[in-house]
Design a protein around this nucleic acid. Structure first.
Lengths: 242, 242
DNA sequence: CGACAACTTGACGGGCGTCAACCGGAGTGG
DNA sequence: CCACTCCGGTTGACGCCCGTCAAGTTGTCG
């Protein structure tokens, strides 16, 4: 097993950043029963209102978590990348109150919920990492409420860019300075409470102002300090080491 | 001790709703060292950026959790009432990423963080209740992102009213049909991403439309079904028994 | 009963939504 | 190899919801 890349490695590495895991913890995690699957962009991984029996781990690719209004409005409440467990909350809550959908082609691993739950209680370091992970998710939600509620369109989008860049960098997915934006402008709109048209106008503006440069869906942050200032971005809420 | 009202009773009752606590669990909780304090409206209970050594329990009264933008904008991200532990997240996160402030005169109990953390790991039912509580908080944040991001002003306010009414009812603080709104219109504005002026206009409108009746800060829900429809309110996200 | 906070109301303006047209690149099939 | 299609991005015109400002009015607590 040693040295062989493993579907759960990203998760183990991430949990290791959240709590001090010893060799036994890591071994126990890597022994978790799971089945790996490739899914196309747009695939639903979790559906609102359904009880869940397995936990979904995002092995590679990007996903978003979203809710819908009765009128059909869609609000993305978070984005996820490599190594993110998409339903830690379902270890203790029975039914999903939202949807999770792949936004790129992705590889996922379905892990036995009962087995993971058992590990969380048998091995304090693992339980602590999982709980801590869910608390950081909550902190990100709080920042998003602030972002959507109290910043103007340009700042909201800049803030989202800063967050994605920082999280990609921490997870080792991409550099802060230049990365491929995994989402469309419509998805950015759904995450910021705007419309796709206005997102486009603001991205053009951020380009004109020299904060970013875009080529297709590739985004290069030309002036991190300027973007950070526009975004009013302080990474403290991510509670991440990097 | 038996039968005597106790500062921690509200918390124990609430945790009992989140997980099946046996007599030993309850006894252990009620033995937690704590000091009770009365604080006036406006008092800061948690300050962004400071490390916390004690956990704050709201014994009676109301509190809000909020963040500020650099420009001075304030966003309330949640409201709290009797029996709510205000910083479960600080059991595992070192520094506060937001503020918590009393919005009425309130009684709080400061509980030793180390002792509570110990209990969480020694007694699975207690740990589970606390973790579950933090997951429900996260679910509420998600709903608020949706509320602020994708509903119009009238619906946002109606949704907040429905949530407060439901939570007060579950906690036994007030009836759904008529309760005293603990917050000012400015605070409602800060919670919904609006201005106090517009909140006032919408409350007047909800009154004219017959959904609510107001007298001072007293609010009576005259037509719950109508208000629920306007709010697009579905209590599933509260994950509460009632 | 005075002072101060909270609420109420109106006039006006702007940021963002809506609608609609067009562009461009990637995938597909002839 | 090129035409067709489709999705996502781009741009402009126009309008509305909600913000801003400012002037009362009400309520509450000393």
């Amino acid at each position: 097993m040693h040295g062989k890349p493993h579907a759960l490695d990203g998760m183990i590495e991430k949990l290791g950043r959240l709590s001090r895991l010893d060799g036994d913890d890591r071994a126990a995690l890597s022994r978790l029963k799971h089945s790996v699957a490739d899914v196309p962009a747009g695939w639903y991984l979790i559906r609102e209102g359904t009880p869940s029996t397995d936990c979904c781990l995002l092995v590679s690719g990007f996903a978003c978590r979203h809710k819908l209004t009765a009128a059909g409005g869609r609000q993305i409440v978070s984005f996820h990348l490599n190594g993110d467990l998409l339903d830690v909350q379902h270890l203790l809550l029975e039914t999903a109150d939202h949807n999770v959908q792949a936004i790129s082609n992705a590889t996922v691993a379905w892990i036995s919920k009962a087995q993971l739950k058992e590990l969380a209680w048998q091995r304090p370091a693992i339980g602590q990492a999982l709980w801590r992970d869910s608390l950081i998710d909550a902190s990100i939600y709080r920042e998003w409420v602030l972002n959507v509620g109290r910043r103007d369109a340009r700042s909201r989008i800049a803030h989202l860019l800063c967050e994605i860049a920082t999280r990609c960098s921490v997870a080792g997915v991409a550099e802060v300075e230049a990365f491929k934006l995994p989402m469309t402008q419509e998805q950015i709109a759904d995450a910021t409470g705007l419309t796709a048209v206005h997102v486009n106008r603001m991205l053009m503006l951020l380009g004109e102002q020299g904060a970013i440069r875009r080529k297709g869906r590739q985004v290069e942050i030309r002036n991190w300090e300027q973007l950070r200032r526009i975004a009013d971005f302080d990474p403290a809420y991510l509670h991440a080491a990097a």
